[in-house]
């Protein structure tokens, strides 16, 4: 199964995207805990796309593609916004005290922890794509 949606670069769409991720995750047979992981991961990437890639400009859009089979969901977010280089972002120091705790880099850290696969590429046409995949844990 495959669904595709276009959204404006406005954080008000995040709740709707969360609903879509929840509905699709349920259809693919994931449990509530796994659906929460998917919901958060897709929200983090869409927030990044909206705020950094498309500069919160609601006249610009990005594409969300969700495809799934039983026990597996794969999500793509395509956008033609500003360049972004995620490999430059290091994992945040989770042992740091509150005073020294970095406030950036947490979103991608969560993404990598919640999904089985997450990667990012820039196509020849300049369109940037995040891809993430989650498989249902063995019962």
């Amino acid at each position: 199964m495959r669904q595709s949606f276009d959204f404006p670069a406005d954080t008000s769409v995040l709740a709707k995207i969360g609903e879509l991720a929840t509905e699709t995750g349920r259809a693919a047979g994931f449990n509530d805990n796994e659906i929460n992981d998917i919901n958060l991961a897709v929200s983090e990437v869409c927030t990044n796309t909206i705020t950094h890639g498309l500069k919160n400009d609601p006249t610009r859009t990005f594409q969300l593609v969700i495809q799934w089979n039983t026990g597996e969901i794969e999500i793509f977010i395509h956008e033609a916004g500003e360049p972004f280089d995620p490999p430059d972002l290091k994992d945040p120091d989770l042992e740091a005290s509150l005073e020294d705790r970095p406030v950036r880099g947490l979103g991608l850290y969560l993404l990598r922890n919640l999904m089985d696969e997450a990667d990012y590429r820039v196509g020849r046409d300049g369109v940037k794509t995040w891809r993430m995949l989650k498989r249902k844990a063995e019962a």
């Binding site: 969360g18 929460n36 919901n39 958060l40 929200s43 983090e44 927030t47 509150l98 005073e99 705790r101 406030v103 950036r104 947490l106 979103g107 969560l110």
Partner: peptide
Amino acid sequence: PFIDSAGLRVVLVIARDLRG
């Protein structure tokens, strides 16, 4: 029911300011 890293950043910085 849901918090993301943007929400975490907000509470982290508020707590830091309040304590500091």
